[in-house]
Amino acid sequence: MNVAEKIAFINEALGNKYPSPKSELQYQSPYQLLIATMLAAQSTDKKVNMITETLFKVCPDAESMSRTDPEEIRSMVRSINYNNTKAKNILAASCLLMENFGGQVPDSREELETLPGVGRKTANVVLSNAFGKPVMPVDTHVHRVSNRIGLVATDNPRDTEDGLIAIIPENRVIDFHHYLLLHGRYTCKARKPLCSECPLVPACDYPAKNY
């Protein structure tokens, strides 16, 4: 298959498997998605959801978070990896949102990346899920799957992002991101891909298919 044929095949196969794809992080606002995404670095969505269930009851928005004692924030995120750094960044980002954006999460990558703890991937997650922008957040799953299948041949996430944006129709980018992420999380796993259960085998270039 050529790349266009692969995209069409993946879109149909994973569209059938995940008919309403969306982030598995739980949130009620762009702010809550931002904080959950910051917490998700080097962690799992399941773990983050356990933490934010309490965190967002106490601090549901930037205003309440910015007024919360740093130690209280740290105690609420204690069980997450890199909790000290994440707690500091959450508080600092919340304060900057109040100072510079009226407590609202901006809808541009440039402005999002001015916030402590927010890099390109986190900004893209917020832009895609909260604001419906056709951007491609690239985590380890998206990078791995898109290279295994043969959509791209890249060594780093930024090149993967650029390569995918160049070939995926703009109106399919948001869903396609979720397809690749969910496929990598549950089927095309890093160490033991479940190739015998994979609906993408006819479109996949992975040389070590595990049957």
Rank of each mutant, 00 (worst) to 15 (best):
A123R: 02
A92D: 13
R172V: 04
K86Y: 05
S146P: 10
E110H: 11
D155Q: 15
D69T: 10
I168N: 00
M98K: 11
A92F: 10
G102M: 11
R191L: 14
R78S: 12
R120A: 02
Y179N: 01
P116C: 04
L182H: 12
L164V: 09
H143Q: 05
T68F: 09
D139K: 10
P157R: 02
G102A: 09
V105Y: 03
R78I: 13
N171D: 15
V125W: 00
E110A: 12
G163S: 10
L91I: 12
N100G: 07
G163I: 12
H177T: 03
D162M: 15
P193C: 04
F131W: 09
P116L: 03
R67M: 13
L96G: 05
L151Q: 08
A153S: 15
D69G: 10
A123T: 04
A190E: 12
C188Y: 11
G163H: 11
P70L: 03
L115T: 06
F101E: 00
E110M: 11
L91Q: 01
F131Y: 14
G150Q: 04
Y186W: 15
K133C: 02
T68W: 11
Y179L: 05
A153N: 14
T85S: 14
K86I: 08
G132V: 09
C188W: 09
L112T: 05
T154K: 13
G117F: 01
F131G: 00
N84G: 09
S75V: 11
T122N: 03
K121L: 03
P134N: 02
H177F: 10
N129K: 03
E113H: 09
A166G: 08
R158Y: 14
V152A: 07
I80P: 00
L180S: 06
D155C: 12
G103R: 04
G119D: 04
L151K: 11
R74N: 13
A153K: 14
E71A: 12
T140R: 08
R78H: 14
T187K: 10
A93R: 01
P134A: 01
L194W: 11
S94I: 07
V152Q: 04
F101T: 02
E113L: 09
T187D: 08
V138H: 00
S108P: 05
